[in-house]
Design a protein around this nucleic acid. Structure first.
Lengths: 206, 206
DNA sequence: TTAATTAAAATTGTATACAAAATACAAAAT
DNA sequence: ATTTTGTATTTTGTATACAATTTTAATTAA
């Protein structure tokens, strides 16, 4: 075993395959062949296998085939997101520390002025700060499992620069700062609904 | 390879280990050793490994150890349950078919007159019918995973019949029958809160 | 042409080997 | 007696081998 990489072969395989799927480098419907991926990534089949199993759990792969989420899948994910993140926003209005609120505000600012890459990161962070504030490990894990698919969204939304997206973040941030739970929840729900609608609109065209 | 079993070694391993964990045959906190399990089940480490990975995804195992759910875990799970099942109850008031409502009512009736075994099943079915009515696969999967942990938790406590449990089910059923979404959601939330409180009360004693 | 048959190749499931990492344990030092 | 150190032991991660299964392609029969 002459490993030079810092992370395990399995972790490396998992991330590589996942990213290739999410970036469209591996198209939907493609059959994943263990040997082929192994050669490509310079590892043996064993870690590839485990990576595939994990991706299967995340519903990105089924039967060794890449499955891109359908519109129904997206709607279902958002129904859950709206409930969980809505609640987290409400809790945030009550519990978020002043420092965290500053962090949140920073995400909004980057959203206005940053590069696309930075905006992607900031948007992710925005939602994470709110979720983390609720301090529910179970909820965080559930959201984590949906991240792969949410990433797909975020890309569309940021890349096509959805109007008002950052304004909405700003409003949510204000509601939290003003310690207004009802409003924070309501705004978060509206925000997510708008995100979904925008995404589905683009889906329909391609 | 002299296979006589009808199912794959992996499937067999997965089911065996899962059942052992859920039945308490493998106690909470136990470290799972691949080689040992392999010998026990008469297969090699490879399928055992994959089974463990899967169980890790299902939160029944963490770091090769059988999880030991804490009170905090239960609170967190119920916070999520209340959101998801509350929503499902609301949707049920709008969308549940008359036949499904009859099924639901049957669960309530069995809850009043059945044997302990039957009551357990009926209560589970009651929640399932409502969840299924919402027709969200993502949500169903999330609940499914939490079910295992709830089961594990319940294991440690003697199962007592909680007062009013069936009355609450009955009320929820009525609200759905009356097509009253607000009330259905509210009652479901109250019901789950009471459930948690009862759980934790017994936990504190043991 | 299409459908059925079969041989060859590709792919997977499982077992096994082995080095690296983690753990347990005894002996030495404080 | 406790801590430290070194050594054996266990356990894991990864690679590899091979038989079983599945897929593909070619060939023949309709």
């Amino acid at each position: 075993m002459k490993k030079n990489a810092s992370q395990s072969a399995y972790q490396h395989a998992y991330e590589s395959i996942r990213d290739k799927v999410l970036n469209g480098e591996i198209a939907g419907g493609t059959k994943l062949v263990e040997e082929k991926l192994a050669k490509e990534l310079g590892v043996s089949r064993t870690p590839i296998r485990e990576a595939i199993r994990k991706l299967e759990q995340e519903d990105l792969i089924q039967d060794k085939r890449v499955v891109l989420p359908t519109e129904k899948d997206m709607r279902e994910i958002f129904q859950v997101r709206i409930l969980l993140e809505g609640f987290a926003a409400r809790a945030s209005a009550t519990y978020m520390s002043e420092e965290a609120i500053e962090e949140l505000q920073k995400c909004v600012d980057i959203g206005r002025n940053g590069t696309t890459e930075e905006i992607m990161k900031a948007n992710k962070a925005f939602h994470e700060i709110i979720l983390d504030t609720n301090n529910n490990k179970v909820m965080i894990k559930i959201m984590d499992r949906m991240q792969s698919i949410i990433y797909l969204f975020r890309k569309t939304v940021v890349y096509h620069k959805r109007p008002h997206l950052i304004d909405e973040h700003d409003q949510i941030c204000q509601a939290i700062r003003n310690r207004n739970p009802e409003e924070a929840e309501e705004l978060m729900k509206k925000h997510l609904e708008a995100d979904l609608a925008f995404f589905l609109h683009f889906m329909g065209q391609n």
